[in-house]
Simulated assay, not measured.
Amino acid sequence: MDKRNTVGGQAVIEGVMMRGAKGIATAVRKSDGSIVVDVKETIPYTKKNKILGLPIIRGFVSLVESMVVGIQTLNYSASFFEDEEDETPSKFDKIVEKLFKDKGQDVIMGVSMVVSMVFAIGIFFILPTFSANIFKVFNIKNPIVLNLIEGLIRVCIFLLYLILIGKMEDINRLFQYHGAEHKTVFCYENNKELTPNNAAEYSRFHPRCGTNFMFLVMIVSIFLFSLTGWRSFTFRIVTRIVMLPIVSGLTYEVIKIMGRSNNKIVRLLTYPGLMLQKLTTREPDDSQLEVAITALKAAEGIEY
């Protein structure tokens, strides 16, 4: 596979993070208009340990690593826009720093990740399976049908969530940088000179976007959860949490297989995820494309 086709990243606050051959690069547009770049040489966990690089396992490990990197880069970008009054540590921050000293920030990041995971599981797994249970009133007892209903409810909640957060001004800006990331990656993959004008010509909908991954997770989960039947509410919650690594791991493998082909079936499977990007991306301006290009060049070791 062409190494250009492995470049990817995410939008951050007034910036873009890119992962490339030289590591992880985050470019942020500061309030004074200048662009600051941070580059970290990293090796994915899946390449550090052979076991973590095995099929299925590597998918879940990559998901966790992406969450860690995502929170780190978001915190980094946010640090440039903190108001002076916000710089005073909260009581929680003071307690953590007192207990864990230099490791305080790592602990806070870990807590943030756990809270995010709990929120996601509650909204996208616990709520749908609880809601689907209501349909048993209509004498629906087939576990496959009930799991299908649960999956549809999960998709609806996901869509509603994206629509609502997309109305927030800050999130709308984030989605513009998300679009800039996709256009820049497309430009690079097509061997075009990395300029805002060239990048602007490409689509903001990219098949390797995390939105596609999230959509496929929901589809794969319907099939896997159907294998567990439809027992008690507690049993369903436990099995869904326990099977989450398997679901994410299988979805990762599906996406890797799909990435090697562009036939009609693959295009059909990726189409819903591409359409979802209408909710998670916005058309960027030239200044935002410039930031994304700066991040990609730094990540790939290209002079910028």
Results as ranks from 00 to 15, higher is better:
5 N>T: 12
130 F>P: 00
281 T>W: 12
265 I>T: 14
17 M>I: 02
256 K>N: 10
160 L>D: 00
86 D>P: 01
144 I>S: 04
97 E>R: 12
97 E>P: 00
182 H>V: 06
38 D>P: 00
201 E>N: 06
173 R>H: 07
302 I>M: 14
238 V>G: 03
145 V>P: 00
139 N>S: 13
186 F>L: 09
300 E>N: 13
166 G>Y: 04
170 D>Q: 13
52 L>G: 12
59 G>Y: 02
82 E>A: 14
245 P>W: 12
52 L>H: 09
114 V>R: 08
103 K>C: 01
276 L>M: 15
288 Q>F: 01
103 K>L: 11
122 G>M: 05
247 V>K: 03
76 Y>P: 05
234 T>M: 10
105 Q>L: 05
142 N>S: 14
224 L>D: 09
122 G>K: 00
48 K>W: 10
251 T>V: 06
211 T>F: 02
123 I>M: 15
151 G>D: 07
154 R>P: 02
93 D>M: 03
81 F>A: 08
151 G>H: 09
297 K>E: 08
80 F>S: 10
102 D>L: 04
217 V>F: 03
29 R>C: 07
124 F>L: 14
292 A>I: 12
205 F>K: 12
278 K>W: 02
148 L>D: 02
50 K>N: 02
277 Q>L: 08
62 S>I: 02
133 N>H: 10
222 I>C: 01
292 A>R: 06
186 F>R: 00
139 N>W: 02
236 R>N: 09
75 N>P: 09
286 D>C: 03
197 N>D: 15
289 L>W: 08
141 K>A: 02
264 K>Q: 14
93 D>A: 13
182 H>R: 07
215 F>M: 11
21 A>S: 13
191 N>D: 15
187 C>D: 03
7 V>P: 05
186 F>V: 03
126 I>H: 01
105 Q>M: 05
141 K>F: 06
214 M>I: 14
48 K>G: 15
245 P>Q: 13
180 A>I: 00
285 D>G: 11
285 D>I: 04
288 Q>N: 07
123 I>P: 00
256 K>A: 13
29 R>I: 11
30 K>W: 04
254 V>R: 01
235 F>M: 08
31 S>V: 12
124 F>Y: 12
177 Y>K: 03
169 E>Q: 10
159 L>A: 11
117 M>D: 01
60 F>N: 04
270 T>H: 04
205 F>R: 12
144 I>V: 14
202 Y>S: 05
200 A>C: 00
295 A>F: 10
7 V>S: 13
192 K>N: 08
89 P>H: 10
177 Y>P: 00
282 R>E: 13
260 R>N: 13
239 T>W: 07
187 C>K: 02
103 K>G: 00
241 I>Q: 10
283 E>W: 01
168 M>R: 01
300 E>G: 04
25 A>S: 15
283 E>V: 13
25 A>F: 06
35 I>S: 05
85 E>F: 14
182 H>I: 09
72 Q>W: 01
117 M>E: 11
284 P>N: 06
12 V>Y: 08
60 F>K: 08
268 L>A: 14
119 F>N: 05
114 V>P: 03
239 T>E: 07
73 T>I: 02
4 R>I: 01
237 I>M: 14
194 L>F: 09
127 L>V: 13
170 D>R: 11
36 V>H: 11
278 K>P: 01
281 T>G: 06
266 V>Q: 07
54 L>N: 03
143 P>K: 06
302 I>S: 07
